[in-house]
């Protein structure tokens, strides 16, 4: 039995003039501790699916369960990281990372010290009293990760979290995030349109095709790559092989349109 189970999801957006089917017939399962990626061109409903899994959006049809429980009933089991950090500029770093705990009345000394320790682990000790505008883009995204992890979610959603960063920062953060998630045994779903990032970070890749969004292909990343940190995986000989395969699939998807 899967940890996260997505069952026959359909979703249609309605506007005055049209009804657009964003997702059609999506079913998949993720085991605890797995890292999977949703890869695909823009407009294939990846972010919509992520919002549905996070319980932010109710699907037209189908259901999502986490550990056998329907997703709507769960509070705070799912952390969500956005494309940009979206730290609140009027709050200090400390107030930002404790936000989730504060909103759920869980501001205990124990949870607080856990959060500070996370910040320390991300190499950000001593910035607690600063404001987000005083930090660099990479630092801010790390703070956002701490904020997401502070409530100890069971499942982590990463919606293109590295896309707004420069290349070097992105590579470094990939390693950090991958390492952090592995050490906590977190289950994670990454949405990306970067093939390399998907290969380097995940155990399994779901390739989506657009209009309507559906799963086009499932690619299993070989064990040799999975055991390596993202940066080293990028240098492995198997990496470019898989990259080529996926590249062809993506082109196939695009020409079919």
């Amino acid at each position: 039995m899967g940890f996260l189970k997505i069952d026959e999801i359909h979703h249609t957006y309605f506007t005055k003039t049209s009804a657009t089917t964003a997702l059609s017939n999506i079913s998949l399962e993720v085991k605890e501790g797995e890292f999977v990626s949703f890869l695909g061109p823009s407009g294939c409903g990846k972010t919509t699916l992520l919002s549905i899994i996070a319980g932010l959006l109710k699907p037209t049809e189908g259901k999502v369960t986490l550990e056998g429980q329907p997703i709507e009933k769960l509070d705070n089991q799912i952390g969500y990281m956005l494309q940009q950090d979206y730290l609140f500029p009027w709050k200090t770093i400390e107030e930002n990372i404790l936000l989730g705990l504060k909103l759920n009345n869980q501001l205990t000394a124990e949870k607080k010290s856990y959060t500070y320790k996370l910040l320390e682990q991300m190499g950000l000790g001593g910035v607690e009293k600063q404001y987000p505008s005083q930090l660099s883009g990479g630092m801010r995204q790390r703070v956002a990760l701490v904020r997401t992890l502070a409530t100890e979610p069971k499942l982590l959603m990463l919606d293109e979290p590295f896309s707004a960063l420069d290349y070097q920062t992105k590579l470094r953060l990939e390693d950090l995030v991958s390492d952090t998630l592995k050490s906590f045994g977190k289950t994670a779903i990454l949405v990306t349109h970067d093939i390399g990032e998907a290969i380097a970070m995940s155990d399994r890749i779901y390739l989506f095709s657009p209009k309507p969004g559906q799963i086009y292909k499932i690619i299993h990343v070989p064990d040799e790559l999975r055991s390596l940190p993202p940066f080293q995986a990028r240098n492995h000989e198997l990496y470019s092989e898989i990259f080529q395969t996926i590249w062809k699939e993506v082109e196939q998807v695009e020409t079919e349109q």
Binding site: A54, L56, D75, N76, I78, G79, Y80, L82, Q84, Y86, F88, W90, K91, L99, G100, L103, N104, T151
Partner: peptide
């Protein structure tokens, strides 16, 4: 106010009042 700030709060299960106090009001100061 950027709806993504509200999205961040919603993922933490914030109520509408909490969203107002934590994001909407301070963003509009």
């Amino acid at each position: 106010v950027d709806p993504n700030y509200l999205k961040v709060l919603q993922t933490f299960g914030a109520t509408r009042f909490q969203s107002f106090r934590e994001a909407i009001l301070p963003a509009c100061f």
